[in-house]
Amino acid sequence: MKKYLQVLTGIGLGLVLTTGLYAQEMLQIKGSDTLINLVQRLSEVYMEENPGKFIAITGGGSGTGIAGLINGKCDIANASRLMKSKEIKQANSRKITPKRIVIAMDGLSVIVNDRNPVSKLTKDELGRIFRGEVTNWKEIGGNDMSITLYGRQSNSGTFVFFKEAILKADYSQKMNRMNGNAQIVEAVKQDVSGIGYVGVGYVKKVTGLTVVKVASASGKKYISPLDAEDVKSGKYPITRPLNQYLNGIPKGAVSHFIAFELSEKGQRIVEEEGFFPIPSEYRDFNNKNLGM
């Protein structure tokens, strides 16, 4: 009995010590489910190149990441939307000054099942579909079939971004609230009547889907988010920057990792993961926020 106790306390002590040691070097990143795969990949390559550095990444949605930054639970918050002024105020009241860095560009992609003949929509039509004003595909040039909406849950930055950029009103109460980009892709693949929106990084290697071409207004050119130039230049109507929020001008480990993300190598990984590298205007923006 005594021996067991000794062994147990030994193990316990060991655990405490090791976690204590790791905690010093462990960078905590939290937030957007759209960004999680990309940042995961970036950190893996980074940790390979810099032995002794550790990064822990969790998802939960942009809202969760931003809440984490405000509550001092993480070093970097991934966010596919901007911080709201209310959130910035909350952060300031806790002596946290959020600094925004743009690490990649995303063409938010609207997807339908590949058995659905509809392949292009205007921004206005998208708004009407997701507000629940258009409920049958035949009203917008498709077959006679009711529309099934797939969107994200309210903790998602993509949910908020799409609402503010396209709907400018509430989502239809009938929209299914899915638990992440991958679930929307899976659902639309199976559902011939489905339509959903996900980060472009989630549609590149998938079959069974049509990535809808979007026009900013009727009569304008329909553009695909898979076209790198059009997303980078902002011609694609639902282009958005993917952000990371930091507490103040970064120092030490955080700034080292950010520099890697923005380096040529980091941006190459961004492209490999299906997103687009940052254009020069955001480079200047980043430099300003990094105090360079």
């Binding site: 931003i66 809440a67 209310k86 909350q90 309210s154 903790n155």
Partner: peptide, 17 residues
């Protein structure tokens, strides 16, 4: 589709100020 009380709490409690 249905949305239960438990899922509502689980979805929204993570991000609510």
């Amino acid at each position: 589709s249905v949305r239960t009380m438990t899922s509502t709490i689980a979805i929204e409690l993570g991000e609510v100020p």
